[in-house]
């Protein structure tokens, strides 16, 4: 499999050349074009267990992800994948570190990568925002997408990110949800609200723009549905 990212950074699109008998998983709706003989299956991936209440909660939170599985079959095949928003795509090679991905940051992955929905550590605090998290493990390639450019921070010590700017981070980093400044009053009045404080060592991927902030700016001027 060969991955090329074209038209970076503002209109990035992934061109993937697949050998015979290869497989690729992608977010449903990400396919732009593909070879005619490609075999496609769409599946619904749901978050892992957690009892009746856990299941109910996830249903209400809409925590599920439609994934399309593309198989090349007998011949080589070609596919183009693109996210919905303007922005960059970043290939990330998973080996020993697990990667936590903000759900809209996931574009595609190779078969050796296991996706696990409903990473519990982060989601409950983002009330009002329908973001959830998935954990990618195993080995293979993950394509990440962002609103805007993607910049990498090699965290060594402590680093703070506004929650709307997180794309993905290695699970070797521990994190806590906290306020950015010194006072709680300031945290909310100052517009930064809650931020994510990462600790330890690992790679962190941020997006230059916040889809929620752009959505609120434009959405507040649109008539209610």
């Amino acid at each position: 499999m060969k991955v090329d990212i074209l038209h970076q950074p503002e209109s990035a699109i992934a061109k993937i050349d697949m050998a015979p008998q290869e497989e690729l998983t992608a977010e449903a709706g990400a396919m732009v074009s593909m070879s005619g003989h490609m075999n496609v299956n769409t599946t619904l991936r749901k978050g892992k267990g957690g009892g009746v209440f856990g299941g109910l909660k996830r249903m209400l939170a809409g925590e599920s992800l439609f994934l399309s599985v593309f198989r090349s079959g007998e011949q080589p095949a070609e596919i183009y994948l693109a996210p919905k928003l303007m922005g960059d795509i970043l290939p990330y090679q998973i080996d020993q570190h697990e990667l936590v991905i903000q759900s809209t940051g996931y574009l595609a992955s190779t078969p050796g990568v296991d996706l696990d929905l409903g990473f519990q550590g982060l989601k409950s605090v983002f009330s009002g925002e329908s973001i959830f998290w998935l954990t990618a493990s195993g080995s293979g390639l993950v394509l990440l997408s962002a609103f805007g450019g993607i910049y990498e921070i090699k965290v060594d010590g402590e680093y703070i990110v506004d929650t709307g700017h997180i794309v993905a981070f290695e699970k070797t980093l521990s994190f806590s949800i906290t306020k950015a400044g010194s006072s709680w009053v300031g945290a909310f009045l100052g517009g930064e609200g809650l931020v994510c404080r990462f600790q330890g060592q690992g790679r962190l991927f941020c997006q230059t723009h916040n889809p929620g902030a752009f959505g609120r700016l434009i959405g507040s001027k649109l008539p209610p549905r």
């Binding site: 680093y159 703070i160 700017h165 950015a180 006072s183 930064e192």
Partner: peptide
């Protein structure tokens, strides 16, 4: 306006 920052930086509103 803050997207991310080093944690020791102090921020006051």
């Amino acid at each position: 306006a803050m997207a991310s920052m080093a944690a020791p930086l102090s921020m006051q509103t």
